[in-house]
Design a protein around this nucleic acid. Sequence first.
DNA 1: TCACTTTGTGCCGCTGCTAAACAAAACGGA
DNA 2: TCCGTTTTGTTTAGCAGCGGCACAAAGTGA
Lengths: 396, 396
Amino acid sequence: MLGAALMLVHTGRAPTRSALTAELGVTRATAGAAAGELAALGLIRVDTHPTAPPTGTHGRPSHRLAVAPRGPVVLALQVHVDGYRAALVGLGGRVVDTRWGCVTVPQEPAAVIDAVVAAGADLLRATKLRCVGVGMAVPSAVSEPEGEALDAFNVAWSVGTPVSAELGAAVRRAGLEGPGGAPPPYFVGNDANLEALAEHRHGAGRDARHLLYVTTGHRGVGGALVLDGRLHTGSAGLALEVGHLTVDPAGRPCRCGGRGCLDVEADPLAFLQDAGRTPGPEPSLLRQAVDLLRQSDRDAGVRGAADLLADRLGLGLAGLVNILNPDRIVLGGLHSALLSAQPRRLHAVVAERSLWGRGVPLLPSGIGRAGLVGAAELAWQPVLDDPVTALEAAPA
Amino acid sequence: MLGAALMLVHTGRAPTRSALTAELGVTRATAGAAAGELAALGLIRVDTHPTAPPTGTHGRPSHRLAVAPRGPVVLALQVHVDGYRAALVGLGGRVVDTRWGCVTVPQEPAAVIDAVVAAGADLLRATKLRCVGVGMAVPSAVSEPEGEALDAFNVAWSVGTPVSAELGAAVRRAGLEGPGGAPPPYFVGNDANLEALAEHRHGAGRDARHLLYVTTGHRGVGGALVLDGRLHTGSAGLALEVGHLTVDPAGRPCRCGGRGCLDVEADPLAFLQDAGRTPGPEPSLLRQAVDLLRQSDRDAGVRGAADLLADRLGLGLAGLVNILNPDRIVLGGLHSALLSAQPRRLHAVVAERSLWGRGVPLLPSGIGRAGLVGAAELAWQPVLDDPVTALEAAPA
DNA sequence: TCACTTTGTGCCGCTGCTAAACAAAACGGA
DNA sequence: TCCGTTTTGTTTAGCAGCGGCACAAAGTGA
């Protein structure tokens, strides 16, 4: 109950106390008690006297609810192909402060993770905010419950790298303090999964019951599914490996052994190649591809490559629609840019190649740094599940 | 709580009161009270003095729990290509009595549904058992929440046939009486989905957290997914249309507009054709194919067709494994027979063509008439969710 | 027959919620 | 300006569900 109330404030669905009452489906008394407890825990702020609220309705104005401005935060970390980023994230997905660094690939996982955790520890020292959890996004499938990276070829980590264990060690080495003085709980997730979670809680996926998220990194295609508000990661954390759907049987060979996988046919590199460009070393492949896509109305070659990308992505999405029947699809990375640039062809292909995909809304991603925000969601989850227990969290 | 307890007895996971206590994770007092209430409702039987229980353990023997022998039943109905079947099904998936009939295609939906409901009403009159719900399985995708059949080409119903409404009308016409004297609640589902549900509750899918079910009818391939004990039907009931996964880009044309879909490459008709047989009018395509598959160790042509079927099905399953990461796969229809006949090739293809499919257990279906049992599960669901409310169910 | 183990049952108290009555804060009309 | 209406916040009483505990019951084995 407390957790459900906090989630409603967290996701912005309960901006007032009366909205909280309605969303929870309980009496005013119960909702009021919950709001009071959350305020006492320092998680939310209850504005008893909202200054000049232009209501326009009858009746007593409701108290406004908001996340506490200097309440606890979580440490959100992200490792990607050429660097890392650390951020302090409050409730509501508010990024308080952020810091980043570069690494040259290949690099030992432990060294990278130590560096990103150290950056986070710096942030915490500088702001003196209380840290209640650590979440990290990595560009790899992550097995559950072991927390091992299984295909982190982007960052040149070997199969089976114990990312979760390394993160735990780094957290202890950095001397981070969580609830009860013990090291804060820490979690690792795949970046595409976490971006999907962020989109569902705070972005274009809000209120979707079955949200399909598909995105590109610099290389490859990732997917995720959020069902009834919870990430569907499959039985071992390995679901939604959408990169190996076949979209062109005569296409490029893929490291999975097949040909014409989405992973190699609908990612930034494929798009640059299809447009006849030779990818340069700088900036990132994703940025080069997005910049190029902007020229599609002036350059016929680019336009052709964009059409090809839309056809292939659309075919892949159509297959996913047949299997998952989502009520919304959010696209990230290059696919988000493609959707914004020319929505029609993509919609048409999905409608044509799926059985009942005509009405599925396709939306571009709605938040920046979704990976970081998603990592924060992971770290917030224990608090959202049971605020009291998570905040007092007796050390082991 | 009461519902959870009933579910445990229903699925056979709580054969004794102490097992119920352990599975529910509550105190003996609470579990005892729940068992007492369910017995008072006439749903289960508590054997206080189990005669001669060969325990072999220390301590006081636990009371045995079982579904009530003459407790209420649900009416399970199934419509298929050339006929229908009605059954009374008790808790625990026990088929009390069954009755069937034939129809010649094409036939008006209302007429078929009237006939199958009438058969069910006969059964109820003959046994004088109390009916608490009606469930019907149809060979078509069923939209939610409207309850319309969307691709019932097998039974020649037009797109958008309001099956749920027709069933409701037939139930009222037949004068069936449910809880409180009102017509019993009625539900419609896709047959593959309901078979999956039956397998999960009572068959080869027991205790799987992420169960993927794939099966053939006489024509086409169907799939279903059971997540954490609940059927995943997608946002509009249209998920798991696995029949249109491409498994042979140069293959047969499919009514979806594509080529080489699972639907036309891994169904009984395709197998018969691949083996060089001309399908006869009798018996059903499924039966002909299963009978033929039995000869695969004597006939090289049949063996080749079986290998081809295993390759194509395996490729389709591998794709599904990449997307859904199930912890178990159960196969029905012709695919079940294929798995029993030659498990090795199928296992090998799934392992080879999926990223992490090596360890996924593949099992043949474990119950007969799974469609009927699944339809019964659908009808039982309100009782399993909240026995008290469902059984007293005030009329509208 | 006597420990010992395991299970069923009754009683007490805590927790979390609802219901109901009352108070507070806005609006609009006389 | 006053008062009725509407909506919301607050307080109190009461109920239902469940856990904890103590005790009784029904087996096993020495």
